[in-house]
Amino acid sequence: MRLSSKQSTLLVLAALMIVSPFFFPSNYYYRIGSLVFVNSIAVVGIVILTGYAGQISLGHAGFLGIGGYACALLPIHLGVPPALAAVLGAVLSGIIAYGVGRPILRLKGYYLAVASLGFGVLVAMVLANEGWLTGGPDGVKVPDPGLRAALEWLGIPLANPQLWYAFSGLVLFVGAWLALNLRDSPTGRALRALHGSEVAARTAGVDIARAKLNAFVISAVYASVAGSLLALQNRLITPDVAGFMHSIELVTMAVLGGAGSVLGGIFGAALLTLLPQVLTVLQDYEHVVLGLVMMLVMIFLPAGLIPSARRLLRGRGE
């Protein structure tokens, strides 16, 4: 039986998630792993928006901020349980993305990038300046969702990093599965059609405005879920999460790994999360090496690491 590309992607992902812990010498590696998964979730959202639909957002960290702060503020101000707050945060992000997306998705190219950037900066500013609500620039503590206690009660005692490795991994797996399914669905085909040519897609009967909006809302929900997971495992959230640099980081992860492919996005996220940890050894050169890696990828593998590598392998096989 030949596996479809979707099945093999999911299989590789699951295998990596399950096998990696056997090589972890300490809990620190679980922490890094869970950060890789959290970043990957947000990046898979960007793969849908940028890779499938060809739209650029430089403000996606804003949705991470909304998702993260929902987990802190809804329990504190309204007494909502943190787990439910994460879901409400995702819904809220979707609604805001719908409202914001309608006008700004009329823009194209640079104009869209700048408008989305403005949105991200606005969210970060509100989070930093409305101290009475958000706790201001020093951030706010996030209540314990009780997941660890629940598992302990079930007889599965896990250290904090292990728990979040498992949980974020599970969420990422589901997220990747949905994104891969979306790719081959009519909605996904419409997105990829408008990526190729908006005029041709419209001629073929695709409602372009609607398709773009769909992609934007879906990717916002992914970002929001990532933000919630980050807030819940850090037990603290600060406005930096929604900051401009974080948005850029997410887009870079997607582009580096290959914006058109889910596995590529995840690989990019893993690389850019791990590299700074490895490079602490040569602390002074960290940014130089990161820049160099980026430049080399852009010059020699313009489609991103995974798609370019796949093309190379396939070329050799035939």
Partner: peptide, 21 residues
Amino acid sequence: LYDDGGDPSKAKTFATRLVED
């Protein structure tokens, strides 16, 4: 010594690294 760049999430990762690793 690790540099967290002012990011609390990084600081948490480095703290985990110092203690665990």
